[in-house]
């Protein structure tokens, strides 16, 4: 069990390292360095900075040193919670991101929960009643869910909300709570706004999970232990729910590992259409404005959170599957 856990954590750390390098590349790729961009911006606004000031900034960010030193400095500062300054907002990156990161995760988790709650019963039903009319309908809807990119679905929903309901169905808060401090009422308001983003983000994943659950369960239903359970005198419903469904749940749980990055990815672009206050719109604005510290930090933090999400799914899997718990493999 410990070997398995160590392996998964090792992979997580490796992933974070790769993300950090990629984030750093994103920060470094645009021509010119941070300070020259900063100076150019100051000049645009009419104020100037002295050469000495510029030089001290360069030293602070280690821009006079080789790239790998700069990278090490950047990582070291990040670990201490210093993400640098946002050029675009003229404020520390941490301030700019604020609770947007938490909201991103809330939306992501809500979408994954939605996916599970919907996919589990549909998957079971489609497998147990294979080739029934409902099975065909679900299969077709599943394909449709896979085929429509989430941002297009968001667009269409927004359009119908606007035209039919004459309401803006986007956002995560009602206007009166948007800038209010956190309270129970605000949390409730958030909960009421969550279903639409969860639906939009979760639909493709639901379609995938239904197919996974259906295929796994079809395999499991043919296993002899189902017959054993029936031969003991269990009713069909109880036998199926207790045994094959339980076994088919394992691959289902491991699906978070790919679902998580997928939903986080989707949330970036869907947030833009639904105007959700997540890191998505922030990232886009930062990229368009070449505010690279902000953009790189967001990519980095999203990567870290995804790794944490995957680790949580590994823990759930360990709890579910005794084979992993005892032998560290399946």
């Amino acid at each position: 069990m410990l070997t398995y856990l160590a392996q998964r954590i090792g992979l997580g750390i490796l992933t974070i390292w790769v993300v950090s390098v990629l984030s750093f590349v994103i920060i470094q790729l645009p021509p010119g360095d941070y300070v020259s961009t900063y100076l150019a911006q100051l000049a645009e606004q009419g104020s100037t900075a002295s050469a000495a000031e510029a030089e001290s900034l360069r030293v602070e960010y280690g821009l006079d040193q080789p790239v790998y030193v700069q990278y090490a400095k950047w990582v070291f500062q990040m670990v201490q919670g210093n993400f640098g300054m946002s050029l675009d907002w003229k404020r520390p990156v941490a301030d700019v991101i604020g609770d947007r990161l938490a909201l991103t995760m809330i939306v992501t988790v809500a979408a994954i929960l939605f996916t599970w709650i919907l996919a589990l019963p549909i998957g079971i039903y489609s497998a147990v009643r294979q080739y029934s009319v409902a099975d065909y309908i679900f299969t077709f809807l599943g394909f449709l869910g896979l085929a429509v990119p989430s941002f297009l679905l968001a667009l269409v929903l927004m359009y119908f909300g606007f035209v039919v309901l004459n309401a803006n169905i986007g956002g995560l808060f009602s206007p009166e709570y948007a800038d209010a401090p956190w309270s129970l009422a605000k949390a409730w308001d958030l909960a009421q706004h969550l279903p639409i983003p969860a639906l939009v983000l979760g639909l493709a994943g639901t379609a995938q999970l239904v197919r996974i659950m259906r295929a796994n369960l079809l395999d499991e239903l043919r296993k002899p232990y189902v017959i054993t359970a029936l031969a003991k005198g269990l009713s069909e419903r109880r036998a199926i729910l207790k045994y094959p469904v339980r076994v088919a749940l394992n691959p289902f749980a491991s699906s978070i590992a790919f679902l998580f990055p997928q939903v986080v990815s989707g949330s970036i672009i869907v947030s833009l259409v639904l105007s959700l206050p997540t890191v998505g719109p922030l990232l886009l604005r930062a990229l368009l404005a070449q505010d690279m510290f902000l953009a790189g930090t967001i990519v980095m933090l999203i990567g870290v959170l995804t790794v944490i999400g995957i680790l949580v799914s590994d823990l759930i899997l360990m709890w579910l599957d005794p084979r992993i718990r005892l032998y560290g493999r399946r």
Binding site: P224, Y225, I227, T228, Y243, R246, D321
Partner: peptide, 11 residues
């Protein structure tokens, strides 16, 4: 029956 390996649920 014949397959003792799979006649029990693995979980």
């Amino acid at each position: 029956f014949q397959e003792p390996m799979t006649s029990f649920s693995p979980v």
